[in-house]
Design a protein around this nucleic acid. Structure first.
Lengths: 108, 108
DNA sequence: AAATTAAGTTACATAAAGTAAGTTTATGGG
DNA sequence: CCCATAAACTTACTTTATGTAACTTAATTT
């Protein structure tokens, strides 16, 4: 007998969100446009992995990259419309976390 | 100047959900109680990693493990109350995926 | 006693993430 | 002109996570 199968669209979404750091990057960008170094120091991700994630998210059209020709050059990252529609997901995670991790001691 | 910091409860929730396979395991268990081998063959995870994930989720009290003393022994996994309250998160991901990945060809 | 079955576990291989130093590009100072 | 500075990466290398396939355990049934 054949196994039930998982919707490929859902699997795709999950594969994006289950990459380490992706959800935190999106969470940060929900606060508004940010620069590479801001994201990096706020969430504590390495430059290498952040560059990777931002490229992936750009390819997925979740994040938009803008070059500001100042000196030294500044890059601004922000969410696209597609990215902004992920807000309910992030907010639900936020709400759930507040509900179920009461004390700091629960969080290790 | 000090960097803004991320809520540790939120980070904790994210660290659970951003592990590979975790969301898919929970998604499966939202369908009801399932056995190890059912989860394994439906989502296509290796036995090793599934055993890991189920242990983690049990420790987090998201999943409940029940031994059915038949022969050979059967283990039933299901969501706890805490686990069930993750449903909105999973449903939002599902909705978002349906909205933004229109064609199978988008999904690689 | 050998075979069967579910739920793992183990040993080993590959892929992903972490770390720290280096690169690029554009100025502004000496 | 040459050196320093600063932001955004990149590279080389190490450590951790995941994948693969064979093996283990325990209770039957043949």
């Amino acid at each position: 007998m054949s196994q039930p199968t998982i919707c490929p669209k859902f699997e795709k979404a999950i594969s994006i969100l289950s990459q380490k750091w992706t959800a935190l990057v999106i969470y940060q960008l929900l606060l508004g446009t940010q620069r590479f170094s801001e994201i990096q120091s706020t969430i504590g991700i390495s430059g290498k992995v952040l560059a990777d994630r931002l490229k992936d998210l750009e390819n997925q059209e979740i994040v938009k990259r803008e070059v500001i020709p100042e000196t030294p050059v500044i890059i601004e990252y922000s969410l696209t419309e597609k990215g902004k529609t992920m807000e309910p997901i992030i907010r639900d995670i936020e709400k759930w976390s507040q509900l179920w991790f009461e004390e700091d001691t629960d969080v290790q």
